[in-house]
Amino acid sequence: MSRQSFTPEHAPAAAGPYSHAVRIGPFVHTAGQVGVDPQTRAPREGVEAQTRQALENVRAALAAAGAGMGDVLRVGVYLTRAEDFAAMNAVYREFFDAPYPARSTVYVGLNPGLLVEVDALAVLES
């Protein structure tokens, strides 16, 4: 199987040696997406807005590879502050329906101004 790299149409260039999304066979994995507006490249204000933007960026990366949010098997969420969990979770529910993907949420350090990062693994039917 060959590995294919995908970049959403209006996404900013990758900040390092990585792809926005990679597909091998039926598997699509996104890079971590943050709450940065793809047009202005500025972080959104607050964890709700950043979570929404990060998930929109995940959606765009998946779409570039031919996948959608309904194809997502697993999600990784990375928060800078534990107290933002409930607010992130409320926005997260807007993007996924039951049965929900498996998910891990961990607390990490991100670049200044960033509160959340999200990545996803999707599986497409053959």
Results as ranks from 00 to 15, higher is better:
120 A>M: 08
101 P>M: 12
118 V>G: 02
69 M>L: 15
73 L>H: 08
105 T>W: 11
77 V>K: 01
124 L>H: 03
107 Y>E: 10
99 P>N: 09
109 G>T: 13
3 R>Y: 10
8 P>S: 04
116 V>A: 07
40 T>D: 00
44 R>Q: 15
116 V>W: 08
30 T>P: 04
56 E>R: 14
114 L>M: 07
51 T>E: 02
88 M>R: 05
66 G>I: 04
9 E>C: 03
79 L>N: 02
47 V>Y: 01
89 N>H: 12
27 F>N: 03
58 V>H: 06
77 V>A: 15
85 F>L: 14
69 M>H: 08
73 L>C: 07
85 F>W: 12
5 S>Y: 13
109 G>K: 12
18 Y>K: 10
118 V>F: 11
50 Q>G: 04
9 E>K: 13
101 P>S: 14
59 R>V: 05
68 G>Y: 14
74 R>D: 13
55 L>C: 09
101 P>G: 09
42 A>F: 09
69 M>W: 08
39 Q>E: 11
32 G>T: 08
8 P>W: 04
18 Y>V: 06
52 R>G: 11
39 Q>L: 15
95 F>N: 11
78 Y>V: 09
58 V>T: 06
77 V>F: 06
114 L>H: 10
26 P>I: 07
40 T>N: 00
85 F>M: 07
59 R>A: 15
45 E>H: 12
107 Y>M: 05
6 F>S: 01
48 E>F: 00
80 T>F: 07
59 R>Y: 07
80 T>D: 07
110 L>Q: 02
49 A>G: 04
102 A>I: 05
33 Q>W: 05
122 A>P: 01
107 Y>I: 14
84 D>F: 00
28 V>W: 02
37 D>A: 04
64 A>T: 02
11 A>F: 05
119 D>I: 05
28 V>A: 09
110 L>N: 01
100 Y>K: 10
120 A>D: 06
5 S>D: 11
70 G>E: 15
79 L>G: 01
63 A>I: 05
109 G>N: 12
36 V>D: 01
16 G>E: 08
41 R>C: 00
119 D>L: 10
91 V>K: 12
108 V>E: 14
78 Y>I: 04
18 Y>T: 05
35 G>L: 07
113 G>I: 00
117 E>V: 03
82 A>G: 05
85 F>H: 14
26 P>S: 10
104 S>N: 13
75 V>L: 14
99 P>G: 10
72 V>F: 03
34 V>S: 03
124 L>Q: 03
31 A>S: 15
72 V>G: 00
76 G>E: 14
53 Q>V: 03
17 P>V: 00
17 P>T: 02
84 D>E: 11
113 G>R: 01
35 G>A: 09
112 P>C: 02
86 A>K: 08
77 V>R: 10
30 T>R: 03
14 A>D: 09
21 A>Q: 13
98 A>Q: 15
33 Q>L: 11
81 R>K: 14
7 T>I: 07
110 L>E: 00
11 A>H: 05
61 A>L: 08
27 F>G: 00
